[in-house]
């Protein structure tokens, strides 16, 4: 009797849960945190070419070196341009999609699934289409969008897209917006439909216009959704890699940090510098995501 009792107690003790997830805890500790630490160590070392096994401590040399590296600042600038256009564009188009659908409309399911399918396809595959659509040839030689504009006598709209010197990153943001808008739409739809109908009805009875209802009643309720969307888009943008690689590979004009890091590691075999670039991406993301996770954690605990 005593034996069974103690057995029961052991199994139903809350620590059982800990042992259940222990393998995952170890995996995350080693493969996420341990390996980030290892990369940090690389980034502070002298291992700057394929032959060197020199893991000696180099201080912040690799990081200060990045600031003086015009390719790095170029890639960083590109990434910032891309991020601004991508985040703003995706937020806007996703929001528009959800506003068009949120009240319910015949054929909603059809539109929704078409808007969301880009999330299911790899960017290496979609890159083929987008590369063709955004081909820089013009007029009679034009293909893709330039051809379309030429046929429609909208020649002034023709441009160099992702091959252009100044606007390459803005063009590169188009396929990214195309891919992520449906996701943002879904998040906003979930937000809109989580707001009780009574709120709108009450405002309507009070004589508020539709515009005012959105401005003063619905949008304030969607603040958490906005925050989630910004975090998701922001961290995806910082990491952007296959989208750009699939369309323009390592082209200079569209180089971002992840592409440059890949080049530094594989083409130049400079582990120290590649690790330093990776750490820069990580820190930018961490600065935004850690406070967000703490906030989510707190609201969780209040539940």
């Amino acid at each position: 009797m005593a034996l069974t009792l103690s057995r029961k107690k052991r199994i139903s003790s809350p620590w059982g849960g800990f042992f259940f997830v222990l393998p995952s805890i170890i995996a995350v500790a080693v493969f996420v945190y341990g390996m980030i630490g290892w990369t940090l160590k690389f980034s502070l070392s002298n291992r700057t070419n394929a032959w060197s096994k020199d893991n000696s401590f180099a201080g912040l040399k690799n990081f200060t070196g990045l600031l003086e590296d015009p390719e790095f600042t170029h890639a960083f600038g590109n990434l910032m341009k891309f991020t601004v256009v991508f985040m703003f564009g995706t937020l806007l188009s996703g929001l528009i999609m959800s506003l068009l659908l949120e009240k319910g409309i015949r054929g909603e399911g059809f539109f929704r699934s078409i808007y969301l399918y880009p999330m299911a396809i790899s960017f290496i595959a979609m890159g083929t289409s987008w590369r063709w659509l955004m081909d820089s040839a013009r007029d009679d030689k034009g293909t893709g969008l330039n051809h379309l504009f030429h046929m429609a006598h909208l020649n002034f709209l023709q441009n160099d897209w992702y091959s252009s010197e100044k606007a390459s990153m803005y063009a590169m943001a188009l396929p990214a917006i195309w891919q992520m808008s449906g996701y943002v739409m879904a998040l906003f739809l979930a937000g809109f439909r989580g707001i009780p109908d009574d709120l709108r009805e009450a405002a309507r009875v009070d004589g508020a216009t539709e515009f005012k209802i959105y401005r003063h009643i619905l949008f304030p309720q969607l603040k958490p959704t906005f925050l989630t969307v910004l975090i998701i888009l922001g961290h995806i943008s910082m990491k952007v890699f296959d989208l750009i690689y699939g369309i323009a590979t390592k082209s200079y004009v569209t180089k971002v940090l992840a592409i440059y890091m890949w080049q530094v590691i594989f083409d130049f075999q400079n582990y120290a510098k590649g690790s330093a670039i990776a750490m820069v991406i990580l820190v930018i993301i961490a600065v935004v995501v850690i406070p967000y996770l703490i906030y989510v954690n707190k609201t969780e605990e209040m539940k």
Partner: peptide, 26 residues
């Protein structure tokens, strides 16, 4: 849940956001 499980879960979640470049070489 066990003591500290929410914290550990949050540590897990951070793994969702990391750029995989930061673990690729190790």
């Amino acid at each position: 849940k066990f003591k500290g499980s929410t914290f550990i879960f949050t540590l897990f979640l951070f793994g969702m956001f990391i750029p995989y470049q930061a673990i690729m070489i190790p």
